[in-house]
Amino acid sequence: MNPDRIKLIAVPVVLAALAAAPLALGTGYWLGLATTTLMFACLAQAWNLLGGYGGQFSYGHALFFGTGAYVTAVLQVRLGLDPWTGLIAGTIAGGAIGAFCGALSFRYGLKGSYFALVTLAFAEVFRILATSVPFTGGGAGILIPLKVSPANFQFADKAGFYYAMLILFAVSLIVTLAVERSRFGAYLVAVRENEAAAAALGIDIFRVKLGAITLSGALAALSGVFYAQFFLYLDPHIAYGSGVSVEALLAPIIGGIGTLFGPLIGAIVMRALGEVANVWTDGAPGLNLALFGLLLIIVLRFLPDGIVGLIGRLGRRHA
């Protein structure tokens, strides 16, 4: 069977398995962990679209995550809008910030580490802005009032949040699949592989990159919006901190960069490892980061195409 068709079948199968997961995970701690894992997988999926398929490594995806989170929080707290409007507005804002950041960097041909640094700088600027402007609640953060009701994107039980997040993750997965199968996706990969050749074949490199960062920004904002609803509290460091940016890029690299399921697999592996580290070290802070660093080194050294690449190679050996 050709790989295109396998993916077309695998996506609904994986989503169905995720939908059934609460049966095995119960309704307590583990379901909460699964929920944040999906949130993180959605963010990773967003990064992968731009970094994995497009080859434009962002070091500042917190920019989009934080913007999604703050837009929905501020709209609710300051303007009294409902969080579903916040979801839409936050997603659009993430895409718009992506377009703005992309227009500035790609217009001037910034690539590689220069582009990465610009995204990092953008995220930092927004972190400082969120600390200093009044309507975000400044450094003290912003609290979304508790008012449990599905109409208010707040659920009475963990399963409600889990399924809400699963839908958002499904959006990010299906968008990625659609991109893979589209002309835009072929052009995005061509730009990653060789810009001169891509341009000679009629590809407007600037437009393709701009499209990718806009889409990536919007998807990353989805996970930020969910974060705000799930924890009902935000501060500039949580939203725009570099920790978010690092997690966004580690999961796809570990799982398999530029692959459909890499971000999900990477997110699951990292969260599982984080749990193990927590148990072993009695929750010593920062140790999970050290562990992720170690994992990254191992992957870069032995698995250049991540876990998905390893599975592919094993599959071929047995075939």
């Binding site: 990969v189 061509a190 990653r192 592989e193 060789n194 001169a196 050749a197 891509a198 000679a200």
Partner: peptide, 8 residues
């Protein structure tokens, strides 16, 4: 100097 999309 050939410019293939090497990963494809």
């Amino acid at each position: 100097i050939t410019q293939p999309f090497a990963g494809l």
